[in-house]
């Protein structure tokens, strides 16, 4: 899936585990089903764990972009549960 429009942005670089996932989860909650969010996160623990946790919640990971400043942009499509 190459073509997508980002509906929302979130930045979780200002918090550490487990607040990284909590903040991402709250940001995802605000979206409608099918909307796309770009989540900025730090290298290391956040990028290792947050994408997996988001996937476990049933959302669709579209892409992980590596920024020049050693942060990442995780592009996620919201999949509404139930």
């Amino acid at each position: 899936m190459e073509n997508y429009n980002i509906d929302e942005y979130a930045d979780i670089t200002d918090v550490v585990c487990p607040m990284t996932f909590v903040k991402a989860k709250i940001a995802l909650e605000e979206l409608d089903d099918g909307q796309i969010i770009s989540i900025k996160m730090n290298a290391g623990e956040p990028v290792q764990n947050v994408p997996r946790s988001i996937k476990d919640e049933g959302h669709q990971i579209i892409k992980l972009l590596h920024n020049e400043d050693e942060t990442y942009q995780l592009i996620v499509k919201k999949v509404e549960d139930e």
Binding site: P18, M19, F21, V22, K23, K25, I26, E29, E30, D56, E57
Partner: peptide, 23 residues
């Protein structure tokens, strides 16, 4: 109703649980 930063932190161990979550 959006969570305040304090609520986000206070209830973080609930929010992480898939059975609880934000909803």
């Amino acid at each position: 109703m959006a969570f305040t930063n304090e609520q986000m932190e206070r209830y973080s161990r609930h929010i992480i649980l898939s059975e609880v979550g934000v909803k």
